[in-house]
Amino acid sequence: MSRWEPNARGRLAAAALELYSERGYEQTAVAEIAKHAGLTERTFFNHYADKREVLFATADEFRDRFVGAVSDALKSVAPIDALAAGLEAIAEMLTEQRDFVRSRQAVIMLNPELQERDLIKLASTSAALAETLRQHGIAEPEASLAAESGIALFKVSFHRWIATKEEHELSLFMREALDALKSVTAGKGARSVT
Protein backbone atom coordinates (compact mmCIF):
# COMPACT_ATOMS: atom_id res chain seq x y z
CA MET A 1 0.00 0.00 0.00
CA SER A 2 1.40 3.39 -0.91
CA ARG A 3 2.21 6.00 1.73
CA TRP A 4 -0.05 8.60 0.23
CA GLU A 5 -3.59 7.93 -0.93
CA PRO A 6 -5.83 10.59 -2.46
CA ASN A 7 -8.84 11.67 -0.40
CA ALA A 8 -8.02 9.32 2.47
CA ARG A 9 -10.23 11.27 4.88
CA GLY A 10 -13.25 11.09 2.59
CA ARG A 11 -12.68 7.42 1.83
CA LEU A 12 -12.46 6.62 5.53
CA ALA A 13 -15.67 8.52 6.25
CA ALA A 14 -17.51 6.75 3.44
CA ALA A 15 -16.21 3.34 4.54
CA ALA A 16 -17.14 3.98 8.17
CA LEU A 17 -20.64 5.12 7.32
CA GLU A 18 -21.19 2.14 5.05
CA LEU A 19 -20.04 -0.30 7.74
CA TYR A 20 -21.97 1.46 10.51
CA SER A 21 -25.10 1.27 8.37
CA GLU A 22 -24.60 -2.42 7.53
CA ARG A 23 -23.25 -3.82 10.82
CA GLY A 24 -23.99 -1.18 13.40
CA TYR A 25 -21.71 1.35 15.04
CA GLU A 26 -20.80 -0.82 18.03
CA GLN A 27 -19.95 -3.83 15.87
CA THR A 28 -17.54 -1.95 13.60
CA ALA A 29 -13.85 -1.70 14.49
CA VAL A 30 -11.39 0.92 13.28
CA ALA A 31 -9.31 -1.81 11.62
CA GLU A 32 -12.34 -2.83 9.53
CA ILE A 33 -12.99 0.75 8.49
CA ALA A 34 -9.40 1.24 7.40
CA LYS A 35 -9.34 -2.05 5.51
CA HIS A 36 -12.66 -1.28 3.80
CA ALA A 37 -11.21 2.07 2.67
CA GLY A 38 -8.03 0.38 1.44
CA LEU A 39 -5.94 2.19 4.06
CA THR A 40 -4.15 1.43 7.31
CA GLU A 41 -5.28 1.94 10.90
CA ARG A 42 -2.46 4.45 11.27
CA THR A 43 -3.92 6.47 8.40
CA PHE A 44 -7.31 6.34 10.12
CA PHE A 45 -5.84 7.80 13.32
CA ASN A 46 -4.01 10.47 11.34
CA HIS A 47 -7.43 11.77 10.33
CA TYR A 48 -9.77 10.87 13.20
CA ALA A 49 -9.28 10.56 16.96
CA ASP A 50 -11.67 7.61 17.17
CA LYS A 51 -14.45 5.93 15.23
CA ARG A 52 -17.07 8.26 16.72
CA GLU A 53 -15.38 11.36 15.34
CA VAL A 54 -15.93 10.18 11.77
CA LEU A 55 -19.58 11.09 12.29
CA PHE A 56 -18.82 14.47 13.89
CA ALA A 57 -15.89 15.66 11.80
CA THR A 58 -17.85 18.60 10.38
CA ALA A 59 -19.24 19.79 13.74
CA ASP A 60 -16.74 22.65 14.03
CA GLU A 61 -17.46 23.76 10.46
CA PHE A 62 -21.20 23.61 11.23
CA ARG A 63 -20.76 25.80 14.33
CA ASP A 64 -18.43 28.24 12.58
CA ARG A 65 -20.72 28.68 9.58
CA PHE A 66 -23.80 29.15 11.74
CA VAL A 67 -22.13 31.59 14.14
CA GLY A 68 -20.25 33.44 11.38
CA ALA A 69 -23.39 34.03 9.32
CA VAL A 70 -25.28 35.24 12.39
CA SER A 71 -22.44 37.56 13.36
CA ASP A 72 -22.23 39.04 9.86
CA ALA A 73 -26.00 39.53 9.66
CA LEU A 74 -26.25 41.16 13.10
CA LYS A 75 -24.50 44.20 11.64
CA SER A 76 -27.63 45.10 9.70
CA VAL A 77 -30.66 43.06 10.83
CA ALA A 78 -32.59 42.08 13.95
CA PRO A 79 -31.44 39.01 15.91
CA ILE A 80 -34.24 36.76 14.62
CA ASP A 81 -33.34 37.63 11.04
CA ALA A 82 -29.66 37.06 11.83
CA LEU A 83 -30.58 33.57 13.05
CA ALA A 84 -32.39 33.04 9.75
CA ALA A 85 -29.15 33.93 7.92
CA GLY A 86 -27.27 31.41 10.07
CA LEU A 87 -29.86 28.73 9.34
CA GLU A 88 -29.56 29.40 5.60
CA ALA A 89 -25.77 29.03 5.81
CA ILE A 90 -25.93 25.64 7.47
CA ALA A 91 -28.79 24.51 5.22
CA GLU A 92 -26.51 25.09 2.25
CA MET A 93 -23.70 23.13 3.89
CA LEU A 94 -25.88 20.16 4.78
CA THR A 95 -27.74 20.10 1.49
CA GLU A 96 -24.41 19.72 -0.33
CA GLN A 97 -23.85 16.54 1.72
CA ARG A 98 -27.47 15.32 1.68
CA ASP A 99 -26.86 11.56 1.26
CA PHE A 100 -24.03 11.43 3.79
CA VAL A 101 -26.00 13.54 6.30
CA ARG A 102 -29.09 11.35 6.05
CA SER A 103 -27.11 8.12 6.44
CA ARG A 104 -25.12 9.63 9.29
CA GLN A 105 -28.29 10.63 11.13
CA ALA A 106 -29.74 7.12 10.75
CA VAL A 107 -26.62 5.71 12.45
CA ILE A 108 -26.77 8.32 15.22
CA MET A 109 -30.42 7.64 15.96
CA LEU A 110 -29.64 3.96 16.68
CA ASN A 111 -27.01 4.68 19.33
CA PRO A 112 -27.58 6.59 22.62
CA GLU A 113 -23.86 7.44 22.93
CA LEU A 114 -23.90 9.06 19.50
CA GLN A 115 -27.15 10.87 20.25
CA GLU A 116 -25.56 12.31 23.38
CA ARG A 117 -22.51 13.41 21.39
CA ASP A 118 -24.80 15.09 18.83
CA LEU A 119 -26.58 17.01 21.59
CA ILE A 120 -23.26 18.11 23.09
CA LYS A 121 -22.16 19.48 19.71
CA LEU A 122 -25.46 21.39 19.37
CA ALA A 123 -25.09 22.77 22.91
CA SER A 124 -21.63 24.01 21.97
CA THR A 125 -23.11 25.77 18.95
CA SER A 126 -25.83 27.33 21.10
CA ALA A 127 -23.24 28.66 23.55
CA ALA A 128 -21.21 30.14 20.68
CA LEU A 129 -24.35 31.75 19.22
CA ALA A 130 -25.28 33.27 22.59
CA GLU A 131 -21.77 34.67 23.00
CA THR A 132 -21.90 36.20 19.53
CA LEU A 133 -25.27 37.78 20.27
CA ARG A 134 -23.90 39.24 23.53
CA GLN A 135 -20.88 40.63 21.68
CA HIS A 136 -23.31 42.42 19.37
CA GLY A 137 -25.08 44.07 22.30
CA ILE A 138 -27.94 41.63 22.87
CA ALA A 139 -28.55 41.42 26.63
CA GLU A 140 -29.44 38.38 28.69
CA PRO A 141 -31.73 36.52 28.80
CA GLU A 142 -32.50 37.52 25.20
CA ALA A 143 -29.14 36.32 23.86
CA SER A 144 -29.50 32.84 25.35
CA LEU A 145 -33.16 32.60 24.38
CA ALA A 146 -32.38 33.56 20.80
CA ALA A 147 -29.48 31.10 20.60
CA GLU A 148 -31.55 28.23 21.98
CA SER A 149 -34.36 29.18 19.60
CA GLY A 150 -31.93 28.99 16.70
CA ILE A 151 -30.91 25.47 17.73
CA ALA A 152 -34.55 24.45 18.21
CA LEU A 153 -35.38 25.78 14.74
CA PHE A 154 -32.49 23.80 13.32
CA LYS A 155 -33.45 20.56 15.09
CA VAL A 156 -37.13 20.70 14.07
CA SER A 157 -36.28 21.58 10.47
CA PHE A 158 -33.50 19.04 10.20
CA HIS A 159 -35.63 16.16 11.50
CA ARG A 160 -38.47 17.06 9.13
CA TRP A 161 -36.00 17.19 6.22
CA ILE A 162 -34.45 13.83 7.15
CA ALA A 163 -37.88 12.21 7.47
CA THR A 164 -39.26 13.35 4.13
CA LYS A 165 -38.97 11.08 1.13
CA GLU A 166 -39.23 14.04 -1.23
CA GLU A 167 -36.20 16.06 -2.28
CA HIS A 168 -37.10 19.38 -0.63
CA GLU A 169 -34.35 21.79 0.29
CA LEU A 170 -33.51 21.99 3.99
CA SER A 171 -33.80 25.77 3.80
CA LEU A 172 -37.52 25.40 2.98
CA PHE A 173 -38.12 23.56 6.25
CA MET A 174 -36.05 26.15 8.11
CA ARG A 175 -38.07 29.05 6.70
CA GLU A 176 -41.33 27.25 7.59
CA ALA A 177 -40.11 26.64 11.15
CA LEU A 178 -39.01 30.26 11.53
CA ASP A 179 -42.39 31.50 10.26
CA ALA A 180 -44.14 29.15 12.71
CA LEU A 181 -42.02 30.44 15.60
CA LYS A 182 -42.76 34.04 14.66
CA SER A 183 -46.46 33.20 14.49
CA VAL A 184 -46.43 31.52 17.90
CA THR A 185 -44.55 34.37 19.56
CA ALA A 186 -46.97 36.88 18.01
CA GLY A 187 -49.87 34.94 19.53
CA LYS A 188 -51.14 33.74 16.17
CA GLY A 189 -50.11 30.09 16.41
CA ALA A 190 -52.50 27.36 15.41
CA ARG A 191 -54.23 25.79 18.37
CA SER A 192 -55.45 22.25 18.58
CA VAL A 193 -58.93 21.63 19.90
CA THR A 194 -59.10 19.11 22.72
Rank of each mutant, 00 (worst) to 15 (best):
1 M>D: 03
1 M>H: 08
5 E>I: 04
5 E>Q: 11
5 E>R: 13
7 N>R: 15
9 R>F: 06
10 G>V: 06
13 A>D: 07
13 A>P: 01
13 A>K: 12
15 A>Y: 06
17 L>I: 05
18 E>F: 03
19 L>Y: 01
21 S>I: 07
23 R>N: 14
23 R>I: 00
24 G>F: 09
27 Q>E: 10
30 V>C: 01
31 A>Y: 05
32 E>K: 03
33 I>Q: 04
33 I>V: 11
37 A>R: 10
43 T>C: 12
45 F>Y: 15
47 H>G: 00
49 A>D: 08
50 D>C: 06
50 D>A: 04
52 R>K: 04
53 E>D: 14
54 V>I: 03
55 L>P: 05
56 F>R: 01
57 A>N: 12
62 F>D: 09
66 F>V: 03
69 A>T: 08
69 A>H: 08
69 A>M: 08
69 A>Y: 09
70 V>C: 02
70 V>A: 02
71 S>V: 14
73 A>Q: 02
75 K>R: 12
76 S>L: 05
80 I>Y: 02
82 A>G: 03
83 L>F: 01
84 A>G: 07
84 A>V: 05
85 A>K: 07
91 A>V: 12
91 A>I: 12
91 A>G: 15
94 L>R: 13
98 R>D: 09
98 R>A: 10
99 D>Y: 03
100 F>R: 14
100 F>Y: 15
101 V>F: 12
102 R>E: 12
103 S>V: 09
105 Q>V: 07
105 Q>C: 07
106 A>I: 02
108 I>H: 09
111 N>Q: 04
117 R>K: 13
118 D>L: 10
120 I>S: 04
120 I>R: 13
121 K>C: 09
125 T>Q: 09
126 S>F: 04
127 A>D: 12
129 L>F: 01
130 A>Q: 11
130 A>D: 07
135 Q>E: 12
137 G>M: 09
137 G>T: 10
138 I>M: 05
142 E>D: 11
147 A>T: 01
148 E>H: 15
148 E>D: 15
150 G>Y: 02
150 G>D: 05
152 A>Q: 11
157 S>L: 04
157 S>W: 04
158 F>Y: 15
158 F>T: 03
160 R>P: 03
162 I>Y: 06
162 I>H: 07
162 I>L: 07
163 A>R: 15
167 E>K: 15
168 H>V: 00
170 L>F: 11
172 L>H: 06
172 L>M: 06
175 R>I: 07
176 E>G: 00
178 L>W: 14
178 L>M: 14
181 L>S: 05
182 K>E: 13
182 K>H: 10
184 V>R: 15
186 A>F: 11
190 A>L: 14
192 S>A: 13
194 T>D: 13
194 T>G: 13
